[in-house]
Amino acid sequence: MTFYDIFQQTMPLLLKGAVITLELTVVVLPLAVLLGLISCLLGMTKYLKFISNIYIAIIRGTPILVQVFFIYFGLTQFLGIRMTAYTAGVISLSMNAGAYLSEIFRGGIQAVNIGQTEAARSLGMPYSSTMGKVILPQAFRIVIPSVVNQFIITLKDTSIISVIGLMDIVMQAKQVIARTYKSFFVWILVGLVYFVICYTLSKISQLIERRLSVGKNRN
């Protein structure tokens, strides 16, 4: 069997897996951003800060594989509920990325000079407008590169959910290998598929970044 044969047989299956991977990513990212924002805002309060701190500590302190197993096997058993692998994947990946995004957002907000807050407050603007119209627009530009970075990490982290049986790229590859024993070539193809997706994503983000910095001078 030549490399071309393997390519022909494997690629359609891998692409089918890629659809699952992308679909999962598209669902997870907005949820993660939402979780990250909520956690970040909680983190800036006096009394609810501990919620955000505990959340981030747990996610950062445990491997993502353990988190997926805990949600899919542990939590379902404890609560006596049934959950599809897909749902478990969405929950665990969103919670995971959300914690990291929360820290990225916090960093972005803190990176905006304190003088900006003082200027806005001295003009009589309340905290909420100061945040919404002065701090966040500046923080947004600062965090774009880190957020895109996290998006790409999360996209690759979806490969972990093959362990609970979702037919993503990795799971498809495992099945092909089980039939053909062509580990070397198949894993190269898997890498290639991921690479094309991630590389495209980072190029798109570069484009967005450039567009935004142009807007800064025109507006």
Binding site: N113, G115, Q116, E118, A119, A120, R121, S122, L123, G124, M125, P126, V134, P137, Q138, R141, K216, N219
Partner: peptide
């Protein structure tokens, strides 16, 4: 906030909002 509307302040480092044009 109401009271501060009545008290203008100018800073050493200007603290203009860099993402907004002069008039904005």
């Amino acid at each position: 906030n109401k009271a501060r509307e009545n008290i203008g302040m100018v800073f050493q480092q200007f603290n203009l909002f860099p993402h907004l044009s002069v008039i904005k």
